[in-house]
Amino acid sequence: MTFKAIINGKTLKGETTTEAVDAATAEKVFKQYFNDNGLDGEWTYDDATKTFTVTE
């Protein structure tokens, strides 16, 4: 399945996608990506659209 992340950061904005077997796996991938890029913020997840949003 394809999962999307919308990034609303102070220094980084945009979208990225990942292929994962479930939402928990996708969340781990996205959180690692955000940690690697120095992002920290509020997380939400919309199961209907398979979209994570992080707002810094």
Rank of each mutant, 00 (worst) to 15 (best):
A26S: 01
W43P: 00
T18Y: 08
T17G: 03
K31D: 00
Y33H: 05
E19K: 12
E19L: 14
K4L: 07
F34N: 01
E19S: 11
K4D: 04
G38S: 06
T2D: 04
T16A: 13
E56P: 12
E15L: 08
T25H: 11
V21R: 09
K10N: 10
E56I: 15
A20D: 01
D22F: 02
A48Q: 09
A23H: 07
K28G: 08
D36H: 08
T18C: 14
E56D: 08
T17P: 02
I7W: 15
V29Y: 15
M1Y: 14
N37E: 09
F34C: 14
T16C: 15
E42R: 07
I7R: 02
F30N: 01
D36W: 11
D47L: 05
F30L: 09
G41N: 07
E15C: 15
K4G: 04
E19Q: 14
T18K: 03
K28C: 07
T25V: 06
D22H: 02
T49R: 06
A20F: 02
T44W: 07
A24N: 07
Y45V: 00
T18G: 02
Q32T: 09
E19F: 15
E56T: 11
A26V: 00
D22W: 00
E19H: 13
K50G: 04
T51C: 03
I6W: 04
Y45C: 00
A20Q: 06
Q32F: 05
T11G: 11
T18D: 01
A20L: 03
N35Q: 14
E56Y: 11
F3Q: 02
G14M: 15
L39P: 03
N35L: 14
A20G: 02
F52T: 01
Y33V: 05
F52Y: 03
D46H: 04
V21I: 12
I6Y: 08
E15Y: 12
F3I: 01
A5Y: 06
D36Y: 08
I7P: 00
G38I: 08
I6A: 03
D36L: 12
L39Q: 04
Y33S: 04
T11D: 10
Q32E: 11
F34V: 13
Y45Q: 00
L39Y: 13
Q32H: 06
G41R: 06
N35D: 08
I6F: 05
N37H: 14
T53Q: 05
A5M: 15
T51N: 01
T16W: 15
M1S: 12
V54P: 02
K10L: 14
T2M: 11
E27S: 05
I7M: 12
W43T: 02
I6D: 03
E15N: 06
K31V: 07
E56L: 15
N37W: 15
N8F: 12
A5L: 15
D40H: 13
D36V: 10
K31T: 04
T17H: 10
E27G: 06
F52C: 02
A23D: 03
K31C: 06
V21N: 09
T49K: 06
T17Y: 14
V21P: 14
A24V: 08
T53I: 08
T49E: 04
N37A: 13
K50I: 02
K28E: 08
V54T: 01
F3D: 03
V29H: 14
T17F: 12
K10D: 07
Y45H: 00
D36K: 10
K31S: 04
K28I: 10
T25A: 13
E15G: 05
L39I: 14
F34A: 14
F30G: 00
G41Q: 05
L12E: 11
L12N: 10
T2V: 14
G38T: 04
D36T: 07
T53V: 09
N8K: 13
G14F: 15
V29C: 13
V21D: 09
D47P: 13
G38Y: 06
D46M: 02
A26G: 00
A20T: 04
T53Y: 13
A24S: 09
T55Y: 13
T17M: 07
L12A: 07
V54M: 10
I7N: 04
K4C: 09
T2H: 07
V29I: 14
E56Q: 12
K50C: 05
M1E: 12
F3A: 02
T44F: 09
A5G: 03
F34S: 04
T11V: 11
T55I: 10
T55G: 04
G41T: 06
T17L: 09
N35K: 15
D47T: 06
K50R: 15
T2G: 03
G9S: 11
F30E: 01
T18S: 04
K13C: 15
G14E: 07
G38A: 06
T17C: 12
K28W: 08
V29W: 14
A26C: 02
T11H: 12
E42T: 12
Q32Y: 04
A20Y: 03
A48F: 11
T51H: 01
T17E: 07
